[in-house]
């Protein structure tokens, strides 16, 4: 529930930021001293250690984790722990479900937000400003607080325990609209649009053949951020789904709340379901960092 849809930017009327890649080296504060490195390394260790410990605990027996001093290197018990976790919850299904859910949400959100972002950025219509203001306003509304009527709706529709119960309510993001709009305002040259219209193309054709190609990098970044958020979403999925058809967060919730007694097994489940995001993160971390900073900088 902690910020399922954290917007990434100072809203309001901030001055447009200079057009510059956020990860280009800057030197205005000068070169970092050894103390700076030391502190940063410390912070890095604290950031990464719990994840490393997950790996250690997942590959040990419960008795080994509980020994004094605790082990610091991975052991050989991973497969057995994973087996025990599978006895309780089908983690493969959970991971597949999470891929489907997060993938659908990412694709849907990116599409809807690109459409709306383009309209707000470049099209002229009567309620443009009003509607965009409304969109920004909705960033402040925490969707999880509507969970009770939503639950009642899902019971009535017979969607409890079905993935669409999780996909549909999470399919849009005000931040996404904002993000795409800010990007397209700058990245989409008006001359190009104008040329399309002069040729007599419809707005949808212009969108397909001119806007989409240009929007692609921002769509990819937004897609990654939304995917990550959807993968980690907790509150609504644990209400709407059950252990029969879980996402990974539902599975972890069940593992952690008394499905199994052994911490090593819980950690094996945690490890297995966290690997996909961490892997994506290690591969694309640079782009994700860039996306978050871009979101923030373009206020």
């Amino acid at each position: 529930m902690t910020g399922p849809d954290r917007p990434h930017s100072p809203s309001g009327d901030g001055t447009p930021a200079p057009r510059r890649s956020p990860w280009r080296p800057r030197s205005r504060q000068g070169r970092a001293g050894p103390l700076t490195y030391l502190v940063l390394i410390g912070v890095t260790v604290v950031s990464v250690f719990p994840l490393y410990w997950t790996l250690v605990a997942a590959t040990r027996t419960n008795a080994e984790i509980n020994s004094v001093p605790p082990p610091m290197l991975p052991g050989g018990n991973l497969m057995k722990n994973i087996d025990l976790a599978y006895d309780q919850i089908d983690l493969t299904k959970a991971i597949l479900n999470s891929l489907i859910v997060s993938g659908s949400i990412a694709v849907g959100t990116v599409m809807f937000c690109t459409l709306a972002g383009f309209a707000f950025a470049k099209l002229r219509f009567r309620f443009n400003n009003l509607l965009f203001g409304l969109t920004l306003g909705t960033m402040m509304i925490p969707p999880s607080l509507g969970a009770i009527p939503l639950y009642m709706m899902m019971v009535e529709l017979g969607w409890i325990d079905h993935l669409q119960a999780v996909v549909l309510p999470t399919l849009v993001s005000a931040f996404g609209v904002f993000f795409m709009r800010q990007y397209l305002v700058e990245a989409l040259p008006n001359e190009l649009l104008e040329a399309g219209w002069v040729d007599g193309a419809s707005t949808f054709r212009v969108f397909r053949s001119i806007v989409l190609p240009i929007a692609r990098p921002a769509m990819a970044v937004l897609g990654m951020l939304v995917f990550l958020q959807a993968w980690n979403d907790f509150f609504w999925p644990i209400l709407a789904l059950t252990a029969n058809n879980p996402t990974v967060q539902v599975a972890l919730n069940n593992l952690g709340q008394g499905y199994v007694p052994d911490r090593s097994v819980i950690m094996a489940g945690t490890f297995l379901t966290t690997i996909p995001v961490i892997a994506v993160f290690i591969l694309l971390g640079r782009q994700i960092v860039g996306g978050i900073m871009q979101g923030a900088i373009k206020g």
Binding site: L40, L51, W53, A57, N232, L252, G256, T270, T273
Partner: peptide, 19 residues
């Protein structure tokens, strides 16, 4: 440094809390 510090953000509430 930036990526490493953002790793916890990529970790879910559930995973982080269980650890």
């Amino acid at each position: 440094f930036r990526v490493a510090m953002l790793m916890p953000y990529a970790t879910s509430v559930a995973a982080a809390t269980l650890v």
